[in-house]
């Protein structure tokens, strides 16, 4: 009996066939690109001169830190990823990379990104990056995700922090402007992810993830999307009358905000299955465009000011 048991546990060692592309997939490149972009805006609007090499170093560290968070998230969510069609093709459910390999990869990148940002740029930014990774991995992934329907509301804070980290990297301090960017992304997250959750609710239900459409139903989710969109549009426009960002930004945020409101109202009104699906997909796609265009306005303004100082 003992001999049988002994033989049963003596499995041949697993030799990895994971390719570099599998490890890149662990970094969630699409999420990473949005993080890089929002962090770039945080750097761009920061006052004073920031050497390009240090700016590049900061962006690289923030990007790697975001990728590390993604890898750790996948390491911890391998079981539910396998149950959802959207995530079933990720490297862990496909068996390309084991959870422990992803964990080691994520922890290594987290360590290097935080330490490099701290040593080469400043320790305030390094500490904030460490907090961002901690918040995403521990607070969101390990605690909130499987526990409450407010998971992406609270967890959205981690996705909203990159422009703040970038600002702190550039200035060594905190100010109102990066906090405004934080608030915009924070209030953008719920309507964006709940739109996704509405047309993927079967996936989330199968995996046992308590997303709002699964727990409270689609109608309650539609109302929450509408309410959060109203708050988002107000928060996004507010920096203009408050005097932090100028009229170009203000007009852009009003126009884009009107687009978001139209999408949110459509999501709220359309209850029939096919129409509802179309409205939620449209909301999801437009919300990405909204954030990208809103932040692009700030970036373009900085570039225009830099090249035409006399006009401005």
């Amino acid at each position: 009996m003992t001999a049988v048991d002994h033989n049963a546990i003596e499995l041949p060692p697993r030799i990895s066939e994971a390719e570099v592309s599998d490890y890149i997939a662990l970094l969630k490149p699409r999420v990473m690109s949005l993080v890089i972009f929002t962090a770039l805006v945080g750097l761009a609007i920061a006052p004073g001169h920031f050497h390009p090499v240090l700016a590049f170093t900061s962006l690289l560290c923030i990007a790697v830190g975001a990728g590390a968070s993604g890898a750790l998230n996948m390491a911890l969510e391998g079981d539910i990823d396998a149950l959802m069609s959207r995530t079933a093709n990720r490297p862990i459910p496909r068996g390309r990379i084991t959870r422990s390999e992803a964990l080691a990869f994520g922890l290594t990148l987290s360590f290097f990104s935080v330490m490099t940002l701290g040593i080469l740029v400043n320790w305030y930014a390094g500490a904030l990056l460490a907090f961002t990774i901690f918040f995403y991995v521990v607070i969101y992934t390990m605690v909130l995700k499987r526990w409450t329907a407010q998971n992406i509301v609270i967890g959205g804070a981690s996705g909203a922090l990159p422009p703040v980290v970038a600002w702190v990297a550039a200035t060594g301090s905190i100010s109102v402007e990066p906090l405004l960017l934080f608030l915009i992304i924070f209030f953008w997250t719920p309507p964006h992810f709940w739109a996704l959750a509405l047309f993927r609710s079967d996936d989330y239900a199968r995996a046992g993830v308590p997303m709002l459409p699964v727990v409270a139903g689609p109608d309650a989710t539609r109302l929450q999307i509408l309410l959060y969109t109203i708050v988002l549009v107000a928060v996004a426009v507010a920096p203009w009358p408050l005097g932090y960002f100028d009229a170009v930004y203000g007009i852009a945020s009003l126009v884009l905000g009107a687009g978001m409101m139209v999408c949110a109202v459509e999501v709220y009104r359309r209850r029939e299955r096919t129409e509802s699906l179309r409205a939620t997909r449209k909301m999801f796609a437009f919300s990405i465009l909204y954030l990208f265009a809103l932040f692009s306005t700030l970036l373009i303004e900085v570039v225009v000011r830099a090249v035409t100082p006399l006009v401005w």
Partner: peptide, 24 residues
Amino acid sequence: KSRRQRSIAIALALGVLVVLFFAV
């Protein structure tokens, strides 16, 4: 083949780190 690819990627990443520290 995959091990060689991973080794090259690690070498490149370490190279970037060295260049980054030198440049800063």
